[in-house]
């Protein structure tokens, strides 16, 4: 049994991790942005990349959130059934968001639906959003933290296709989403694609997909090939940074899938912007933590 003290400690750790995320991009995103920056040779893309990197430097130096939109907070939990704080995790994560909102500080981005009132704490009914997966019987937990900004969340879309439309329909859907709202979502984008039965499963998978580290691939070779084809194809559109046109469009394309009903193909698309603020932290059974996405961090 975990003690109150341990719960408090985990709250503090999660609050500090959340605040850090607003100010520093994860290693894989930084590496990929650095790579894409080198590919661009036009004056517009270059000055935009220079400004982006300058902004990240200044954010670190002044200890400020790198983008003013620090998003709505979402957590993706993959826990063992015996994780000591499993039953208290919702209150721990909610409290951590309140704390990070004060300390970072984060912009107030939680509006109670129907009341249309900003809570001022980034928390509210079922916010932060928590996605739960019980993945084993052990005592560890891995948590992705994601800041869903307005601009990069807007392109999100899901739809159920008829089997006759096939994977070709999936490809068309992804391209339509990216060439419409994607252009305004601060490219280069990280594109998540979910393929499943219905809208909600496909949409959820697409969001989980952009939590994955850039450079990882779907275990199925055909799906991995689809990822590659979509990535190359979207890059060939040449959105460039901020959609101002250039040599590349995306930081990556990640596909997640489930088995599905044979009469339908559910497809979901989620996009992350260049300021893709997400991070992963792992807790072991003794509640010792390890940050997996940002090197050299002590919380």
């Amino acid at each position: 049994m975990a003690t109150d003290r341990e719960a408090q400690e985990m709250t503090g750790t999660m609050a500090r991790f959340t605040a850090l995320l607003a100010k520093r991009l994860p290693d894989d995103v930084l590496t990929q942005l650095g790579r894409l920056r080198k590919v661009e040779d036009g004056p517009l893309p270059r000055i935009v990349y220079d400004t982006m990197f300058k902004n990240l430097e200044l954010a670190a130096e002044l200890d400020r959130p790198c983008c003013q939109d620090t998003g709505a907070l979402q957590f993706f939990v993959r826990a063992g059934a015996r994780f000591p704080l499993l039953g208290r995790l919702r209150s721990i994560l909610t409290e951590a968001v309140r704390e990070a909102t004060r300390t970072a500080p984060l912009r107030h981005n939680a509006v109670e639906t129907f009341e249309e009132r900003n809570t001022g704490t980034n928390t509210g009914t079922n916010l932060p959003w928590i996605d739960w997966e019980i993945v084993s019987d052990d005592a560890t937990a891995e948590i992705d933290v994601y800041m869903a900004g307005g601009g990069c969340t807007l392109p999100g879309s899901a739809k159920v296709l008829m089997p006759g439309e096939g994977y070709e329909g999936v490809v068309q859907f992804v391209f339509d989403v990216v060439t419409s709202y994607g252009v305004n979502a601060c490219p280069p984008l990280l594109v998540g694609v979910g393929i499943s039965t219905s809208v909600e499963t496909a949409a959820l998978l697409s969001k989980r997909a952009i939590q994955r580290r850039i450079g990882t691939h779907h275990p199925n070779p055909k799906a991995a090939e689809l990822e590659r084809l979509l990535e190359d194809g979207l890059n060939a559109l040449g959105l460039g940074p901020q959609g101002l046109s250039g040599k590349a469009s995306v930081m990556g394309v990640h596909v997640e899938s489930t088995a599905r009903h044979p009469s339908v193909i559910g497809v979901g698309v989620s996009t992350g912007c260049w300021a893709h603020r997400r991070g992963t932290i792992r807790f072991d059974g003794s509640l010792r933590h390890q940050v997996l996405t940002h090197h050299g961090v002590t919380l």
């Binding site: 902004n55 400020r64 959130p65 983008c67 003013q68 601009g151 940074p241 901020q242």
Partner: peptide, 11 residues
């Protein structure tokens, strides 16, 4: 257009 997400530079 000012590059999106570059709020600290602007400030």
């Amino acid at each position: 257009i000012f590059p999106g997400g570059c709020a600290v530079v602007a400030a």
